[in-house]
Simulated assay, not measured.
Amino acid sequence: MSLIALAPGIFYFPGAVNSFVVVGRETDALLVDTGLDDSHARKLLRAVAEAGLVPSGILNTHSHADHHGGNAFILKRFPELKIFAPPLEDAVITHPILEPLTLFGARPPRELQGKFLLAPPSPARLAPEPGLCRMGGADLELIEVAGHASLMYAVRVGEVLYAADALFGPDALSKHPLTFCADSGLQKASAAKLAELEGVRTVLPGHGDPTDDLAGLVAVNLAAYERTTAAVLAAVDAGAASIDELLARVCDSLDVTMTNAGAVVLNRAVVSAHLTELLETDRVHMKVTGNKLIFGTQA
């Protein structure tokens, strides 16, 4: 599979997670997000080489394993490369155990240490602050889009926007109705902020196909995020309950079937994020009853 051109000097490599490639000086190629594992990274490097380019740096938009899992393989081939990431995210990429540890709340069992939650470590450093910058010989603009992760950057190069996981393609939203987030309020605000950008002709989501309809893609994502909030609120309205009880109700309402521990802790975090948003807008209340943390609509 080859790199696909989005504009002169701007490419992407499609996969379960898209990799964004920006050409800088001569044959320099900044790699933005390296995929889940060695397989994606190997194919990405082959495509970059076939295009006559050489990796000049790596930017991870955030620290989820499917966006930096290929770093270690690429570093074996190009050990001199520098890896950049937003604040907080750099710590998780350097110490990946932080991701499953945070989701589980303690040292994670083996079932939560697979490649989807625990990528190989790679030494990340802080990326420049949001705004115009040069990285790996490439000129680009970093845009803060926190919410899906504690902090995340979208990348704009001229008329092309790589939205990372601030926006998902329609198929990805349909497949995963409980779209992951660390902060659902910020997730919505970040998506809405991208809709205000002027002069964007092509937008590439982290998961999905490129489109020329930025406003339409934002609208689809905001509708999906609001649908999750409504499902969580409806679960609480059905009767005061713990997070795990609410998770089961939400999954039933959205026709989600969880079959492994990873899915449970990820979706539990989504429900928790939306509960926090509902608490902060005074639509839900939290209390401790019978040694349980209970959420209800009455204080």
Rank of each mutant, 00 (worst) to 15 (best):
L30Q: 02
E80Q: 15
L217Y: 01
A91P: 02
G239I: 10
F104Q: 06
G185T: 11
L254P: 02
V92P: 07
D33P: 04
S63P: 00
P55W: 00
Q113C: 15
F104P: 01
D252E: 13
L44T: 09
T102A: 15
L178P: 09
H68V: 08
L31E: 00
V270M: 08
L178E: 02
R227D: 10
T297H: 03
D28C: 11
T276N: 14
L98E: 11
A182R: 14
S122T: 08
D37F: 02
D213C: 03
H68R: 08
S150K: 12
G290Q: 03
K188S: 11
E111D: 05
Q113A: 12
A166G: 01
A172F: 11
L279D: 06
D90V: 07
M286E: 15
F168M: 12
P177S: 10
L118Q: 09
A163C: 12
V270N: 05
A219F: 04
T281P: 09
N221Q: 11
M258Y: 03
T102E: 11
P121C: 06
E226V: 05
N71E: 05
A261P: 07
E99Q: 14
S2I: 03
I93D: 00
P14K: 05
D282R: 14
A231Q: 03
D165S: 09
P86M: 02
L142I: 10
T297N: 03
Y162I: 07
V160E: 07
G24F: 06
Q187S: 14
P87C: 06
H64W: 08
G35N: 04
E99C: 09
L161Q: 00
A235F: 01
A240L: 10
E198T: 12
A261V: 07
A91R: 13
N71A: 05
A238V: 09
L173Q: 06
A41N: 06
A230S: 15
G262S: 13
E245C: 06
G35T: 01
G131T: 04
M1C: 08
R125M: 12
L98K: 09
A146W: 00
R283I: 08
V270A: 12
A230G: 13
F168A: 11
V155F: 00
A16K: 11
A224D: 07
L101Y: 12
M1I: 08
F84P: 09
L140H: 01
E159A: 14
F104R: 04
G114S: 13
P109V: 09
G199A: 06
E89C: 09
A273W: 01
L45I: 13
Y162K: 08
L173F: 07
G147N: 07
I294T: 12
I93M: 03
L75P: 06
V17K: 12
V54H: 11
P205D: 02
E159F: 03
E144I: 02
G290M: 02
N71Y: 03
A124C: 06
V157T: 11
V92I: 15
A138E: 00
L233N: 00
D255P: 08
D37Y: 01
A7S: 12
G137V: 05
N18R: 05
V264H: 09
P123L: 07
H285W: 02
D66H: 11
A182K: 13
K188V: 14
F73E: 15
P14T: 10
L222R: 14
